Computed example of a mutant assay.
Amino acid sequence: MRTTYPSIAICGIGSVTVTIIYALYQNQIPFKILCRNQTRFQSLTENPISFQGPNGKVVRIELNNHLTMTKCDQDKFDYILIGCKNQNLSEYLDETKSLLKSNGKWILIQNGIPELQFQSYESKIIGGVVGWNTQTLSKHTYFQSNIGSLILGEAQGSEPDSFWKKILTPFIPVILTDELSGYRWHKLAINSIINGLAAAKQLSLGGLFLNRQSRIEALETLTEIKLVMNRLEIKERVVPGSVSIQKLGGGPGSLPRWICHLILILLGLKYFKIRTSMVQDLDAHRKTEIDFINGEVVDKAKELGISVSRNEWIVRKIKELELAQ
């Protein structure tokens, strides 16, 4: 007997959503890709996506039968995954809200804490915390460098439906949680260094973590975020494969500094050539998401009266780099 799944659409194709598309494609789960303009529609029609997973195998994904124009589609969906930058979220939600069923939900897989931007939509949002890294090698080629989980949690604080595990595993391990904020803040802290600090210095992860001064700055960044998290009483939830901010950040519960340095060195060696998304944005002269990563930390710290000078420096430096482009 054939299993029937909720209807799924994806709006915005990028490195993260392509990894999810790959899992759906491999599991033969029906899905639609909502194209916002004719040029994108035509490009995806004519050019299959080439995806290389951590096992090294390259798969060509034909999307012809999955494509539709957002403004022309008459279907309504149970779930719409939104794959865009934080600064474009409002626009994407406005364009797709008519395509959600009355009890349908968006899935926001952006960095930072996007749920805070749309609290009026709280009942219609599932947050997705991504634990893998996928890079764009060329216009139609993507490379996933590590296996990582997708952590899904309702913005209102409950666990999403268990069918997500069935449709994405084994290609993407899925964790369902009722503690989304704990995972969000953990990933925000990690992104503050691998994206924020790396972009401020315009370095690959190898260049960042194999330099002692940069490691010191990374640990200072995490220590400030740990202080903010503790003041907000955020119960940290660690993304699988990562290390607790409570242990990396200075102060109570911290690991010895030499061990923290060793962890960062090992990360630098493992992902030596990786230039993370915000670094790539600066490389391509695109506006970054800095306001939603380290900028989020700075804003919360100001509300709490906490000094976060290292995070402030990162925000200031990246904005200077954006203006200089």
Rank of each mutant, 00 (worst) to 15 (best):
S277H: 08
I263C: 09
E217K: 15
V243E: 02
L269Q: 15
P240A: 05
K287C: 07
S204E: 02
V228L: 12
K226I: 04
K201L: 14
I274D: 10
M278Y: 06
R237W: 00
Q213N: 13
L210W: 06
I216M: 06
P252V: 09
E220L: 15
R257M: 08
T223M: 09
D283Q: 12
L205E: 00
G207A: 07
D281F: 10
V243K: 02
K201A: 06
R286K: 15
K287H: 12
W258G: 06
E289M: 12
E224D: 09
F209E: 09
E220C: 11
L267H: 08
K226P: 07
S244Q: 00
K273C: 00
F209W: 12
V243T: 10
K270N: 07
I216N: 11
F272K: 13
G206A: 05
H285W: 04
I265T: 06
T276H: 13
G268R: 06
Q202S: 11
R257H: 06
R231D: 08
I245F: 00
I234Y: 06
Y271F: 15
G207M: 07
A284V: 03
L262G: 09
R286C: 07
L210P: 11
G249S: 10
K201E: 09
E233P: 00
S214R: 00
H261E: 15
R257D: 11
G241Q: 03
F272Y: 14
I263L: 15
T221K: 07
K287D: 10
I245C: 02
V279G: 10
L208R: 09
P252Q: 11
A284E: 13
L262S: 13
W258N: 14
K201Q: 11
Q246Y: 03
K226F: 05
G206K: 02
I225Y: 05
Q213M: 08
G268P: 08
V239C: 03
L282A: 12
I225N: 05
G249T: 08
